[in-house]
């Protein structure tokens, strides 16, 4: 079942048993299985600030017509 998911929506599959059944081509897709490095920093929960972000960006988008 998990292979079906990877076939249709090729995100990084965290199921190691499923990964054994993926094709070499699937596993070699650099978008599905990228080499993450130290420059990649986690975005954490920012609480209610998300609402402020939404309003902030939407205002800019309205003003620039996007």
């Amino acid at each position: 079942m998990s292979v079906l998911i990877s076939k249709e929506y090729p995100y990084t599959n965290p199921n190691l048993a499923a990964r054994k059944l993926l094709t070499p081509e699937q596993l070699a897709n650099p978008a599905s299985y990228p080499h993450l490095d130290e420059r990649l920093l986690p975005l954490r929960n920012v609480g209610n600030d998300t609402k402020a972000v939404d309003q902030f960006v939407k205002k800019i988008r309205d003003e620039v017509g996007r």
Binding site: R39, L43, R44, V46, T50, K51
Partner: peptide, 13 residues
């Protein structure tokens, strides 16, 4: 429910 940010994210410089 409170509105909270999405995703774990990583970003480069």
């Amino acid at each position: 429910l409170p509105r909270i940010s999405s995703t774990t994210a990583w970003s480069p410089r």
